[in-house]
């Protein structure tokens, strides 16, 4: 479970999150949506310890992320937006490194390679991987962690439809097994029928919850937060 209480964050004079309260339950895929600048990525970064809140706390399975980061980090796995790697390392070397940090064996590495289709590129340096392959490598790293809290920031942006579908199936399966899954995305139409809950963030606060089965209709109906902008893929 992820629990955010009274979380605020400012960048200079601009307030990005304002006294945000949010609870993400286990056993469900929760979508976090909102316009650019709504605070989605900032919230996720605070939730996984990449940024500190000015006020409030985020707890992951009862552990305060800001106060006890290492212990909290052992409880979640995070997929950043457009992940990049040390350009001099091969896919296999990167996976082996993270597997060691997560206490996993080479078998787990091979399993992750098979799951995300990066096995054929194991000896290719990350600098030479395409955007989609890099994203799948990041997903392989992401899935190596033996944890039950999964946080993903725009996971489908570089993936083709087939791999997006596989990702959604993977996350649904993990949620069915009891994992807490939180996904921030612009591509909410694609998640229709695949999520259990959809939270709308507007100006740093939770402004609404959408029906998970009517995401496409809701997307086109809400001009404030859903109007496509330059970095929202055209639909």
């Amino acid at each position: 479970m992820i629990v955010a209480e009274n979380v605020s964050k400012r960048f200079g004079t601009r307030s990005v999150l304002e006294h945000l309260d949010l609870q993400i339950s286990p056993g469900a895929v929760t979508l976090l949506v909102g316009a650019n600048g709504a605070g989605k990525t900032t919230f996720l970064r605070i939730a996984v310890g990449l940024a500190r809140p000015d006020e409030g706390t985020v707890r992951i399975r009862e552990v305060d992320v800001s106060r006890n980061f290492v212990e909290a980090a052992a409880r979640f796995s995070f997929l950043p937006q457009a992940p990049r790697f040390n350009p001099r390392l091969t896919s296999r070397q990167i996976l082996a490194f993270y597997a060691r940090l997560r206490g996993r064996t080479l078998d787990a590495v091979e399993e992750a390679e098979d799951l995300w289709g990066v096995g054929d590129h194991r000896d290719v340096t990350s600098a030479r991987l395409s955007g989609g392959l890099r994203q799948r490598l990041a997903l392989a790293v992401f899935s190596l962690a033996p944890v039950s809290v999964l946080v993903l920031d725009e996971p489908g942006l570089s993936l083709d439809p087939e791999w997006r579908e596989r990702l959604q199936q993977y996350l649904s399966q993990r949620a069915k097994e009891g994992a807490t899954v939180l996904v921030a995305t612009h591509l909410l139409g694609e998640w229709e029928g695949r999520v259990d809950r959809c939270v709308v963030l507007e100006r740093g606060r939770v402004s609404a919850e959408l029906s998970p089965d009517r995401l496409r209709a809701e997307f086109s109906r809400e001009p404030h937060w859903a109007s496509p902008s330059e970095d929202v893929p055209s639909r």
Binding site: L50, V70, E71, A73, S77, P80, R84, F85, L101
Partner: peptide, 12 residues
């Protein structure tokens, strides 16, 4: 480039 991934692992 990898720090945003690395710094979310349980590593001091």
């Amino acid at each position: 480039d990898e720090m945003s991934l690395l710094q979310t692992h349980p590593v001091s």
